[in-house]
Nucleic acid binder design. Sequence first.
DNA 1: GCGGAATAGATGAGCCCTCAACTACGCTCA
DNA 2: TGAGCGTAGTTGAGGGCTCATCTATTCCGC
Lengths: 166, 166
Amino acid sequence: MTTEVSPGAAPGAEDDGTRWLDAAEQRAWRAWLYSTQLLQERLERDLTRATGIPHAYYEILVQLSETPDRQMRMSELADRCLSSRSRLSHAVSRLEERGWVRREVCAEDGRGLLAVLTDEGFAALEAAAPVHVESVRTHLFDQLSPEQVAALEDIGRTLLRHLDPD
Amino acid sequence: MTTEVSPGAAPGAEDDGTRWLDAAEQRAWRAWLYSTQLLQERLERDLTRATGIPHAYYEILVQLSETPDRQMRMSELADRCLSSRSRLSHAVSRLEERGWVRREVCAEDGRGLLAVLTDEGFAALEAAAPVHVESVRTHLFDQLSPEQVAALEDIGRTLLRHLDPD
DNA sequence: GCGGAATAGATGAGCCCTCAACTACGCTCA
DNA sequence: TGAGCGTAGTTGAGGGCTCATCTATTCCGC
């Protein structure tokens, strides 16, 4: 039994209707699975060790910082961070405890809340950004040729059209 | 402030020594980050909903099933699963509770333990495999051209040489 | 053989995430 | 105007992971 190849693929190749992976797909799958897992763990570890900020929280700070008044509705923030509402709610609570974000009531919609990036939060992001970029560069872009970078973008965009059609 | 581009990149482009990302790198980074995140979440959700098996546990069952006697030293299993010793130890405990794996003392090394895949564990893997392959095919390979699949393998291998030089 | 370093693995605290409720507010239509 | 439905966001339980720590065993040099 292998991951994605039929249990009997080598000898008998029974047909159970499953579209098992061929050898090239199997190799690509393993390469993607292992490289993304290791890269994510590496980036996460570099960032948290140096700054104490998990990448998911870093992403929240980034999204808020990119907005004109450094504030955003919770649900829009969740969408931009590819986060569930629940996850964002928990995360913003933690960021509030650190004093990096605060919640404000939303004037237009009594149900809504605004997440606001504080000056402390912005400072934390400014301190973390160079560390994180260096890590991304070291473990990703320094390893790839310009052609590979272009292919990576192409593949990523292709997958996003399917996974997140907006 | 953007993720990987200097805070002042647009107007002043101050030089603080950080090797910020250029526009193409920024696009590739976002495409990789979002697509891997969504794809992993999607595969994880498909697998756990249909079978109750998290992907990390599935990987353990796969590795054990690929070995001749369906057993392996804990530390080798951890290496093959790209897992920490601690993570594997916790995971095998959960798998033992389900009756899918059992631990056996290792004859050659009194410190060591063998993780053994049970018949129930093998059956669980056999049931889960078609579901998982279908998910991988639907969300990954059905979306990509053969050239993209080849590029994906190439990029993954390149990154693995750096991240996991064995 | 014996003392110290290295290796194998387990364990528990703490953190993050998911999932399934749950509250609160707005919108629509009779 | 108020019943019902949809939307915004929160909450708590439960599970998986990390990190530091701990025990047990083996290896190695003297």
